[in-house]
Amino acid sequence: MRRFLPSLSALHAFDASVRHLSFTKAAEDMGITQSGISRQIKNLEDFLGLTLFERAGPKLILTEEGARYYDEISRLLDKLEDVSIDAVRGRKAQSMLKIGFPPTLMRRWGAAMLTAFATAHPQTWFEVYPCRHDLDFAASELDLAFVRGTGNWSGARSQLLFDEELIVVGAPKLVPLQGLPSDEALLEYPLIQNSSRPSLWLHWLRGAGVHYKSRIYGPRLPNFDMILECAIGGMGLAVVPELHVRTELAAGILKPALNRLQTSGEGFYLCFPQARMNSANVRIFRDWFATEFTRRRQFLPPAFPLDQK
């Protein structure tokens, strides 16, 4: 008997329409006309005997039946896409090593390390996923991850790679040739703050023994990438992990405001979920990284030439 299945074109149109809640935008996404999308949705509704969308002027509203149908169909479309990609790649996505990296750490440190691994093990395919530093390993499908913290993640084994060291930087037009004369001089400048790590300036000032009586003045930005761009433009001084700012310091587009580094109390760790410690790809990466990191220390950041206090 013939399967009771709608056309794949109709399901594509339905998926795009739900994601955009607009036939016009769905049409742009799929590269067809708006009338083509409307016709596909009408055909799907007639096939199912359901009303999938209600129209309220220019607005498109997913009905309760449409929402239930999409909840199931979206998972099946995802699975169909995975199977098709696996066929093109010649292997299942599940066989790939899944590596987690916070985006800034990946750009500033991870790319060179992963390039070396890919060169050493060209037959071990891996895929990199963005992740947060407070990763929940119990709920994650990652095989390993590089994250910042204090070494305590539930359900994972962690290996300290190096401590996080903070440095205060600014554009050359803000920072005097010899740097600021004292820690207290920081408070005379706008201090760019990281809204995702709001305690960094407090940590720095308290560690330096600076006594401040008023609120810390300066704009708030959501991540280090934005903070560095604005610091380069002269918005103010920024306290950032020294690891993230080496390229800018070497190029001279940022300068150390003070001749010192200060640890944050956290470090960068390589973490392995305990449930995946014995998988073949994890063992390959773990053994390779242990050899490279321990024997040659090639991925340990070199000390920055500042006085550490």
Rank of each mutant, 00 (worst) to 15 (best):
P222T: 12
E184R: 13
C230T: 13
G236W: 07
A257S: 09
D225F: 04
Q308N: 11
L237E: 02
P301H: 11
E188S: 14
Y189E: 03
L205F: 00
P190L: 06
I192R: 02
R260V: 14
N223Y: 10
S264N: 02
L205H: 01
Q262Y: 05
P241I: 04
P198Y: 07
A251W: 06
P256R: 06
C230K: 12
L254G: 03
L237A: 12
H244F: 13
G265R: 14
K309P: 10
L202Y: 08
N281A: 10
S214R: 15
F268K: 02
T247Y: 07
A303K: 14
L270D: 10
S195H: 01
R206V: 04
L221Q: 03
L258S: 04
S199P: 00
R295W: 10
A257G: 01
P241N: 05
S264I: 00
V282D: 05
Q308A: 07
S279M: 01
W204I: 01
G234V: 10
A238G: 06
V240S: 04
R295F: 13
A231L: 05
P222M: 11
T291K: 14
S195L: 08
A290C: 08
W204T: 02
L261M: 13
A238E: 02
Y269M: 09
P198T: 14
L221M: 14
A275M: 01
R215S: 14
L180I: 08
V282Q: 10
P241S: 13
I216T: 05
P305T: 09
W288N: 13
G267W: 12
Y212C: 00
A208T: 11
F293K: 06
